[in-house]
Design a protein around this nucleic acid. Structure first.
Length: 367
DNA sequence: AGCTGCAACGTTGTACACTC
DNA sequence: GAGTGTACAACGTTGCAGCT
């Protein structure tokens, strides 16, 4: 917003400021084309994907986050120190790290040391053990593939059996191929208004190619249609996943997982039918904190019953679940869109959860 | 007890697909 | 082409838990 800048503000050129080098590793930086391919991204990114310590730190943090493998205890600082001390060179190296070594990790400085601690190290070890058996969706997310977040990871896991299956996925290749064919078909369409054929010969040639393209498009659409893929899984995301698994980082991750004996499974077709899917067709948005479960658990419970969970309120939203300290924006949007608000009690009743208080005092979800 | 890191959540910015 | 809906990513805030 140039109009809000002070009059004497001077232009700032980031590329010149860092001499075209990544401040973390000294590698070259560049700007990538946007996903549409029609522009250039605002952000400058370091090209040294395999060797940049700053990128590795972020990957470790992402790998350990709750929505991915949930390695409680590994956050930004621990990741930074692990990389700085060369204790790991990829997130999967965490599995080779002895607990006593992690416990002794200095999170502070040489002058003011502060160890990671035995209790935290034991928690990390237990979490890593649990992570071995987490479902495919969590592992897909943990890999940190560009453009793959929670939602996309869940979709991918529902139509693939394993990570190696995803790496060689005919589905992803078909999604990319379909986009290419559609673009080609649009450009050769003999009835195109923007680019009409100029001679009869051209028209008949284009007619021929167009009908061949249309037949192949139909064939791929039919095979993809059976899978009921959401709009989240488009050609940009599909290409991003294909690129990841063709890269050195992707194939190294697959090798390492095989070596560790980790083979997460998906595509179990766990979809329940009929009365087991009482929330089918309903979209929920959750705001605030729930007392009986975390938001992630609430979202899982909704999905297990056939419902969907979105990040923001729109007219498509069926219910806004309101916990304590709700977000003003979501409440306002729900008011505007006429979305029904649910208290935590109403939400639990809808899930069919009986308030069974266990020893921990937690409500147990019959999942 | 104080310090520090992490978890949980909300908000914001960017981008894309779809609809009208 | 504009508007709408949604996802991803990054960042800020607050409260809790472990360490010294």
């Amino acid at each position: 917003m140039p109009e809000l800048r002070p009059r004497d503000a001077k232009p700032f050129n980031l590329f010149e400021h860092v001499s075209g080098r990544c401040p973390a590793c000294g590698g070259p930086i560049s700007r990538q084309p946007t996903q549409s391919g029609q522009g250039i991204e605002v952000a400058w990114r370091c090209d040294n994907i395999a060797g940049c310590p700053a990128q590795l730190i972020r990957r470790v943090e992402f790998f350990a986050q709750r929505a991915a493998l949930d390695i409680e205890g590994i956050g930004g600082v621990a990741a930074e120190k692990l990389v700085e001390n060369r204790m790991i060179s990829s997130p999967l190296d965490l599995f080779d790290l002895p607990a006593h070594q992690l416990a002794a990790l200095n999170l502070g400085t040489t002058d003011q040391p502060r160890v990671f601690g035995a209790k935290n190290a034991a928690k990390v070890a237990a979490a890593l053990e649990r992570a071995r058996n987490l479902p495919l969706a969590r592992w897909i997310l943990a890999l940190g593939i560009p453009n793959v977040g929670e939602t996309v990871a869940r979709h991918l896991a529902s139509v693939h059996q394993s990570l190696s299956g995803l790496a060689e996925s005919p589905i992803l290749r078909n999604i990319v191929r379909l986009a290419e064919l559609r673009a080609r078909a649009a450009s050769v369409n003999p009835r195109s208004r923007r680019n009409p054929p100029t001679t009869e010969t051209e028209r008949s040639q284009r007619e021929k190619e167009f009908s061949a393209l249309s037949a192949e498009i139909l064939r791929i659409e039919k095979s993809l249609g059976k899978l009921k893929l959401g709009p989240e899984l488009g050609p940009v995301v599909a290409q991003s996943i294909i690129d990841y698994f063709s890269s050195e980082a992707g194939s190294a991750a697959l090798r390492k997982l095989r070596q560790l004996g980790i083979d997460p499974r998906g595509g179990t077709g766990q979809a329940l039918k009929g009365s087991a899917m009482p929330l089918s067709g309903k979209t929920f948005v959750i705001t605030g904190t729930l007392s009986s479960m975390t938001r992630a658990e609430a979202a899982d419970a909704v999905r297990q019953r056939g419902g969907e969970v979105a990040e923001s309120v729109s007219r498509k939203t069926s219910f806004l679940v309101v916990g304590s300290d709700p977000g003003e924006t979501k409440l306002r949007d729900a008011e505007k869109a006429g979305v029904k608000k649910l208290s935590e009690e109403q939400f639990l009743a809808m899930l069919g959860v009986m308030k069974q208080k266990g020893e921990s005092g937690q409500t147990h979800l019959p999942l």
